Amino acid sequence: MYKIAVIGAYDSIYGFAALGLDTFPVSDVQEGEDTLKTLASGEYAVIYITEALAAELAHEISKYREQVLPAIIQIPGVSGNTGAGVAGVKKSVEQAVGSDIIFSNN
């Protein structure tokens, strides 16, 4: 059975443990990269990663973009929402569907 992991700064992810998700607090970029590689090669189907850490690991995350598993999904951290997570989901939907399905009235 596949598992769900959450990677990021401790303050941003500790609450996810209460939901039963496996949390992996990291304190620097190298530790984050090592943790991501380990989780992606293991039994984790979904890996949530804070937007701040994902920005630092964009080169590593791109290696998994074309794979079915794991799904790497960006989430906001305690520092706030940068919009990167929503932009990533939007881009994935555009690739899958072939067009933008989110319309803006701006």
Rank of each mutant, 00 (worst) to 15 (best):
F16E: 13
Y44L: 07
V97C: 09
N81R: 14
V6Y: 01
V68H: 01
I4E: 07
G85T: 10
G15T: 11
T35C: 14
S92M: 12
T23Q: 08
E31R: 14
N81G: 03
D34K: 11
K3M: 10
K3D: 08
Y64Q: 13
A40S: 15
S62R: 11
K91C: 05
G42A: 09
D28Y: 07
N106E: 14
G98I: 11
D28P: 01
I73S: 05
I47Y: 13
T50C: 06
E94R: 15
I4N: 05
I72R: 03
N106A: 07
S79Q: 15
V46A: 01
M1P: 12
I75C: 00
Y14H: 15
G77K: 11
A52S: 00
N81L: 05
Y44A: 03
V93Y: 07
D22L: 04
A71L: 12
E43T: 14
D22S: 12
D28C: 03
Q95H: 11
V78T: 11
A96Q: 09
P25E: 11
T35G: 06
G98P: 09
I73P: 05
N81A: 07
P76A: 04
G98K: 08
K91W: 04
I47L: 08
Q95N: 15
G83I: 02
A84E: 04
E33Q: 08
V78F: 08
L36W: 07
L39G: 00
I47F: 12
N105V: 11
M1D: 01
A58T: 05
G77C: 14
A45N: 06
A58W: 07
G15S: 12
K37A: 10
K63E: 15
G32N: 09
G8R: 05
I13E: 05
G80Q: 10
I47Q: 05
A84S: 07
K91H: 09
T23N: 14
G80H: 06
A96G: 02
T23D: 05
N81T: 10
A55P: 01
V29H: 03
A5C: 04
L19F: 14
N106G: 13
N106Y: 13
G80C: 11
P70R: 13
A52M: 00
E51C: 02
A55N: 10
G98S: 02
D22K: 09
I72Y: 13
A96L: 15
P70M: 11
V93K: 13
A71R: 12
L69D: 06
P76V: 01
I75N: 00
A5W: 02
V46G: 01
